[in-house]
């Protein structure tokens, strides 16, 4: 099974073929709903995390929002 190499927050990440945005969050151990993900400069809707398949070379930005002040 070939790996898919994507870039997440500036670092390379190798994932199994067919991996989705949800797979990235699992790998980063992020479970919170207070997260935002950008894939190739577009915000990914939360409803699409599991169904958005990643392609080699995808550039992702992931941030967990904190709200305290």
């Amino acid at each position: 099974m070939s790996a898919v190499r994507v870039r997440v927050n500036g670092e390379d990440l190798d994932l199994p073929e067919g991996a989705s945005v949800a797979s990235v969050l699992e790998r980063l151990e992020i479970q919170t709903p207070r997260v935002a993900v950008e894939r190739n400069r577009e915000i990914v809707p939360k409803a699409s995390y599991a169904s958005t398949a990643l392609a080699a070379g995808d550039v992702l930005e992931v941030v967990e929002f904190v709200g305290g002040g």
Binding site: T32, P33, R34, A36, I43, K46, V63, F65, G67, G68
Partner: peptide, 18 residues
Amino acid sequence: PCLRCYLEVLPPAGSGPT
């Protein structure tokens, strides 16, 4: 983008650290 673009919905109560 505004905050709502990122969060989409209000997070559920008790879902994070304070």
